[in-house]
Design a protein around this nucleic acid. Structure first.
Lengths: 224, 224
DNA sequence: CGATGCCGTCAAGAAAGCGTCAAAGGTGAC
DNA sequence: GTCACCTTTGACGCTTTCTTGACGGCATCG
């Protein structure tokens, strides 16, 4: 079932969306503000996010950026403001669509279908093989010999950046920026620490990695 | 370069779109009606289609269906009609976005960016051939006869400067500045050392280089 | 014809980066 | 409040890389 997260501070709208989406076969969760929305997204791992920009606690683009840090799920923005500058800012921050209130519920559902159609039935199984382990980035599941392997949030972020650039070298500065934030430039010991943990959990012989490779002085690379 | 196909029967709009898209770095083709639009799509294989629904010869959903038969490129629909039923029909036929006229050109460009962002980063990085070796600067990979060749960070920087100026002579001072920093002016022994290593790793006959050439007293040159 | 740069090569010591272990904060769950 | 888990630090061998020096060959030029 397709999971949708609705982030909206107006109870009527959130309720209306929940009812309509549920009636059309979606699994719906809701959150009333940006912080709880981000936490819910981390917990639920939704396939699509409907995000109201008029949240009380955070700026809309911040929420989008927070989501885009570790999720590629489509983001459909709702907003009362119709100004083009608002739309452009939201879209360039990482949103996929922008609908101004008041909106037609049928049109919104159609846009939800269009957004999920792209990422949903894309015949590509989002499962990546790393040696004897398999990683499903969308479902956030790692299996190894039938058993499930648990990864911490930081390990997921780091692994996702590497897996989304198969074969390509990712510089250590870029890794630090994308996982820890723009203020981290020289904390390469973080990378050493978490790369070692990932190798322990994924590689067949962690001391001699075959898929999670180190390029000394530059960064790391995932080789399929 | 990202290829965009504009299908619109109104010359002013088609022209305005062409100008704006071209100015933002897209490669634009245009078609005045549905039949020619489908033919143009087959010919240029665009990465994104901007489709006006008010075409003289075909219904909009027919054009969308014709495209979706073989292409997964995002379709951005333009229309004068704001009725929800129209939007729902177009989106469910396979369109990715729907913008009603009159539209803000900046917003349209933002929606184009959002649409291409999704399908965009699946691309191939450019590779440069050096004799029997191939260099991928973006992925930081060197292959030679199937096997991977490892370069150190300094070797990469030096090679990158040369490869980004194909055929051009790069002075020794400039090389030293760009690889080691502005304080290095006279350490030409560094260049000798690392050029020799690059030739050993890349050239077929390191003693007689064909692509990484020395210009005595001046600098070095990469000949493709 | 000898002298003088300049380049290519080889061989060390110096320095930096990596993997690993261990342990101290923080945070949420119960 | 306690506990468990995750994150953040610190420190230490070890390997790789960078830096530095020295030597011979080759061409140019006086």
């Amino acid at each position: 079932m397709i999971k949708v997260l609705v982030v909206d501070d107006e109870p009527q709208i959130a309720r209306a969306l929940r009812i309509n989406l549920t009636a059309h076969g979606y699994e719906v969760s809701t959150a009333p503000d940006g912080a709880q929305g981000l936490r819910a997204a981390a917990a639920v791992v939704p396939d699509l996010v409907v995000l109201d920009l008029g949240l009380p606690d955070m700026d809309g683009t911040e929420v989008i950026a927070g989501l885009r840090g570790w999720s590629k799920a489509p983001i459909l923005v709702l907003s009362g403001r119709a100004a083009s500058a608002e739309k452009i800012a939201a879209l360039d921050a990482g949103a996929d669509d922008y609908v101004t209130k008041p909106f037609d519920i049928g049109e919104l559902l159609a846009r939800v279908r269009a957004a999920t159609r792209r990422s949903g039935p894309g015949g590509d199984s989002p499962v990546t093989a790393i040696g004897e382990a398999t990683v499903d980035l969308a479902a956030r599941v790692v299996r190894r010999g039938g058993a499930e392997v648990r990864l911490t949030p930081t390990e997921w972020q780091l692994l996702e950046v590497l897996l989304r650039n198969p074969g390509k070298l990712v510089g250590q500065r870029e890794l630090l920026h994308r996982v820890w934030g723009p203020n981290y430039d020289r904390e390469t010991n973080y990378l050493r620490q978490y790369m070692a943990q990932l190798r322990r959990k994924l590689e067949t012989d962690p001391a001699r990695p075959v898929h999670l490779l180190t390029e000394p002085g530059m960064g790391y690379r995932f080789r399929p």
